[in-house]
Design a protein around this nucleic acid. Structure first.
Length: 567
RNA sequence: CGGGGGGUAGCGCAGUUGGUUUAGCGCACUUGCUUGGGGUGCAAGAGGUCGCCAGUUCGAAUCUGGUCCCCCCGACCA
């Protein structure tokens, strides 16, 4: 492609709308433009990258034996009613009525459609296992689209679904996808970590997220510095840690005035103690039933863990009114002492605490020197807190946890029979019995691969594409367009490389050398062929690698071969 | 949805105590010359319903009310 015929609108300045590096560079390098919040245009250069990523995915999915198909984006509402997800997903769904008044939605994911298909087309264990996949646009009315293509309302997902006759089959299918995912992300030049994860609205039990640690991102993962254990922070278990000196004698329980002082920070400051010596009491309603959760003042309750522990559907914090009804005191002064008629669940972290501070269920009053057993009793103990930096590793117990901001590029789930049962995806097994298919599902955020790749591969000058997904492999830079020898060589080389199947961009613009260098670096093409009078004096061209800026002098006749050696 | 910031030329911004403003600056764009190894220099141009609507006023980018959109921080996920 010649620059003069291309549409690669590069920008000198950072766009005001972008905050994170990948977003800035995608706009500056002429990969994308925004249409509206969460909706992006892929310009020709960006679309080339997108297609490269899709090709890598297709290649590995096909190698893993998955079958590509294409499902509609428009789904009838009834299908989603059958699995109960129409109301579960709620406002995320983009819905509409067709001209006949029938309810439709734009697919945010495709378990319903694929399972419905399998229910109709697969009848025998002889047809299993099957893994089906597609690469297609998904629609989710995200409450807050952000970071460019990292979270958009419309995005491209590779989604795969496996159907097996038994659990062992699912395990094989799952492993096969897991391995394919590793190869895909490797080939896309990503440094990633596969972590144990929460299943969220997908359901199922086992789940892994493929996380790309980056300067920005919306997810936090917990990684053990010594044994390599890694998990999503949402599900990472917490080790018990002794913090208090058990030798201290329980002091006398005392009620103290704390006027207007209700938050952990304020209470600890007011009483001259650290948050670690406070117990906060959080009131929730789980499927409408009130519960009290006790956690140490310096820790954060993990609602994912709580929801899982309670096996409840809807978990919400109590409002001020119900807090008063439950505890008899106002918001900010709740405590476990004399708290009656409520199920009390405590995080393990408070088991070792002594002489701590807690609310007195009374306006402007707290207790000090509160002690377990003597002053109140806890009937249920659970791991309910978020893991923090420097916590002990839940697996090896020795190492300490590090938290890393990451981008989720892939997620795999062992779904089990949730969807096959709901939609009647049954098959006749060899024993003559009808059974539901055992399912797995596997997603990759295609746009996110691009953004996270840029997050990990850039410098002050721009993007540094890994070869496999670079929009072009080579860019030819004739520095002086007024110099005939330069342009002759450039054209000859362009024709030769193009003819030999190498994707090459020729910067044939009447621009100064500086502009060409800047743009070439910005759009990040891996190999630059610089044609300048300096090296031409020795009858040489310069081959420069974008990643390390290494330059080698090469004769024109050897350029093609040298490049092939680098690819 | 809650909290914060913002909409002025393609991009980045200034102007906002109402009136010398005919609305500016830098970059980009057009034409000519120039330059040709890290965003070359000079000159001449083109480009705007100041987000939108309504109001106040002799006069509104500037004040008032409404409305739409965008960005950032919190509750969701590929």
């Amino acid at each position: 492609m010649k620059m003069t015929s291309a549409l690669i609108p590069t920008l000198k300045e950072d766009p005001a709308e972008a905050e994170v590096i990948s977003h800035k560079l995608m706009i500056r390098a002429g990969l994308i433009r925004k249409l509206g919040a969460g909706a992006y245009i892929y310009l020709p250069l960006g679309y080339r990258v997108l297609k490269k990523v899709e090709d890598v995915i297709r290649d590995e999915m096909d190698k893993a034996g998955a079958l590509e198909l294409l499902l509609p984006a428009m789904h009838p509402r009834e299908l989603w009613e059958k699995t109960g997800r129409y109301s579960l997903l709620g406002e995320i769904l983009i819905t509409y009525k067709d001209r006949h008044g029938r309810d439709y939605l734009l697919g945010p994911t495709h378990e319903e459609v694929i399972t419905d298909l399998v229910a109709r087309e697969i009848r025998s264990y002889r047809n299993l296992p099957k893994t089906l996949y597609q690469i297609q646009t998904k629609f989710r009315d995200e409450p807050r689209p952000r970071f460019g293509v990292l979270r958009s309302k419309e995005f491209i997902m590779k989604d795969a679904y496996s159907f097996d006759a038994d659990q062992a089959g699912l395990n094989r299918s799952y492993q096969s996808m897991y391995d394919a995912y590793r190869r895909i992300f490797d080939r896309c030049g990503l440094r990633y970590i596969a972590v144990e994860a929460d299943t969220g609205f997908m359901g199922g039990d086992v789940s892994h997220e493929f996380m790309v640690p980056a300067g920005s991102g919306e997810d936090i993962i917990a990684v053990c510095g010594s044994c390599g254990y890694a998990a999503s922070r949402e599900v990472c278990g917490c080790q018990d840690v002794m913090v208090n000196d058990k030798s201290k004698k329980p002091a006398k329980l005392k009620k103290v005035e704390t006027p207007g002082v209700s938050t952990v920070e304020k209470v600890s400051e007011f009483l001259g103690v650290k948050p670690i010596s406070l117990v906060k009491t959080l009131l929730y309603k789980a499927d409408g039933n009130p519960i009290a959760v006790l956690i140490r003042g310096d820790r954060t309750l993990n609602e994912t863990k709580l929801t899982k522990y309670l096996s409840c559907g809807k978990l919400e914090m109590c409002d001020e009114k119900s807090i008063e009804e439950i505890t008899g005191g106002p918001l900010g002064f709740s405590g476990p002492v004399d708290l009656k008629g409520v199920r009390i669940i405590a995080d393990y972290v408070i088991r070792d605490m002594e002489n701590f501070v807690a609310g007195a269920n009374e306006k402007d009053m707290h207790y000090i020197n509160v002690n377990l057993q003597r002053d109140f009793k806890v009937s249920e103990w659970a791991d309910l807190r978020y893991v923090e930096e420097k916590d002990a590793c839940p697996k090896c117990k020795k190492g300490t946890i590090k938290l890393k901001t990451s981008i989720e590029v892939g997620h795999t789930f062992k779904l089990g029979t949730k969807y096959s049962k709901a939609l009647g995806a049954n098959f006749l097994d060899s024993d003559g019995k009808e059974k539901p298919c055992i399912m797995g599902c596997y997603g990759i955020g295609v746009n996110r691969i691009i953004a996270s790749c840029i997050e990990q591969n850039n410098d002050k000058d721009g993007i540094i594409w890994p070869l496999e997904i670079a929009p072009y492999k080579v860019i030819i830079l004739p520095l002086n367009m007024a110099h005939k020898e330069t342009t002759d060589i450039a054209n000859r080389l362009y024709d030769k490389l193009t003819a030999s199947g190498i994707e090459v961009l020729l910067d044939d613009r009447q621009e100064s050398a500086g502009i060409k260098f800047k743009d070439a670096d910005l759009i990040g093409v891996p190999i630059q062929v610089i044609i300048g009078e300096k090296a031409l004096k020795q009858s040489k061209l310069e081959l420069k690698q974008r990643r390390n800026k290494e330059v080698t002098l090469v004769e024109e006749k050897d350029v093609a071969d040298t490049i092939r050696g680098l690819l």
